[in-house]
């Protein structure tokens, strides 16, 4: 018969072992989420907590009615959609080009594509802001030199969002290229040789062999990018502060504004909950719709 001590360990031991990690998760993940959700139902008064009062769904109702929030929602969706399309497309093309063979030119190109990733977003934003200056910026100088129409870039509500997307894409393409190159290089050479012997053309080889083989990494990139892009903040804070006329206000920038400009924590919390729900739904959608097409070995 096992003694009492052994039985105790069998039952309790595992829980004790995961307890430190679980405490961390509870403290830094679960508690903040619960706190966020609860705050979104209150009118929070930070100076005098006694005056904080329960308002039910009023934060949400009011928030959804404001043009600012609606605009932020649309902007964020637009930003995320185009970022994903542009970055995924460009990094895939770059990866196929750079990963195909090892030459000095290729590794130099690979390094320079990755370089933007190690620069801070704030610096990138400021530099691009200068370069995009409608009057003195280098972009308009180049456009002018080529005889093309100049752009107002960040100063016009028509072009501001696209300018921000351009900047962010420039910064993040290198990083995803690197991930995809690594994925491409993990495909055994003999599979391509077999495809050669099977008389598969290069386009067919790409779509029937290369793409399915790196689908797990593409899936990963897709999820990471979606989550990251819905949380866009830095670029917008540095380059446009949400302007002109809310043309570039994103969801997170809206939340930031509510807390630090309007001191309306309850409203900001409601925005945070919405962001949480959107990202959650997107991730679940991806998993359900793509998991069948993704090939894991």
């Amino acid at each position: 018969m096992k003694n009492v001590k052994d039985r105790f360990w069998e039952k309790i031991g595992p829980y004790l072992l995961v307890a430190p990690a679980m405490t961390g998760i509870a403290l830094f993940v679960i508690y903040p989420i619960i706190k966020l959700i609860s705050m979104s139902f209150y009118k929070v008064n930070q100076l005098n907590p006694d005056k904080t009062k329960f308002v039910g769904f009023s934060n949400y109702q009011k928030m959804f009615k404001t043009a600012e929030f609606q605009k932020a929602l649309v902007n964020t969706g637009y930003y995320a959609l185009f970022m994903i399309l542009i970055v995924l497309g460009c990094s895939l093309i770059l990866a196929v080009w750079l990963g195909s063979k090892k030459s000095r030119v290729n590794s130099a190109a690979q390094a320079s594509a990755f370089l933007p990733h190690i620069i801070s977003m704030v610096s990138v934003g400021l530099i691009f802001q200068q370069m995009m200056d409608p009057d003195y910026g280098i972009f308009n100088a180049l456009l002018g030199a080529m005889g093309l129409q100049k752009s107002q870039f960040l100063r016009s509500s028509d072009s501001a969002m696209n300018s921000v997307i351009f900047t962010s894409a420039w910064k993040s393409i290198g990083y995803y290229t690197l991930i995809l190159i690594a994925a491409l290089q993990s495909i055994p050479e003999s599979i391509y040789e077999a495809a050669d012997l099977d008389n598969a053309g290069s386009v067919r080889t790409f779509f029937k062999i290369t793409l399915p083989m790196i689908s797990p990494q593409i899936f990963f990139v897709l999820i990471v990018m979606t989550i990251g892009n819905f949380k866009v903040f830095e670029t917008i804070r540095v380059m446009t502060s949400g302007g002109p006329n809310n043309a570039t206000t994103s969801l997170v920038y809206y939340i930031y504004n509510k807390v630090f400009m309007d001191f309306d924590v309850g409203r900001a919390a409601a925005g945070g909950v919405i962001l949480l729900i959107i990202v959650g739904i997107m991730t679940v959608l991806y998993f359900v719709s793509l998991s069948k097409k993704v090939h894991y070995q």
């Binding site: 055994p188 003999s190 599979i191 040789e193 077999a194 495809a195 029937k208 062999i209 399915p212 083989m213 689908s215 090939h295 070995q297």
Partner: peptide, 10 residues
């Protein structure tokens, strides 16, 4: 091939 080189996704 020695390692068969079967297309694993098919």
């Amino acid at each position: 091939f020695q390692n068969y080189a079967i297309y694993p996704t098919m």
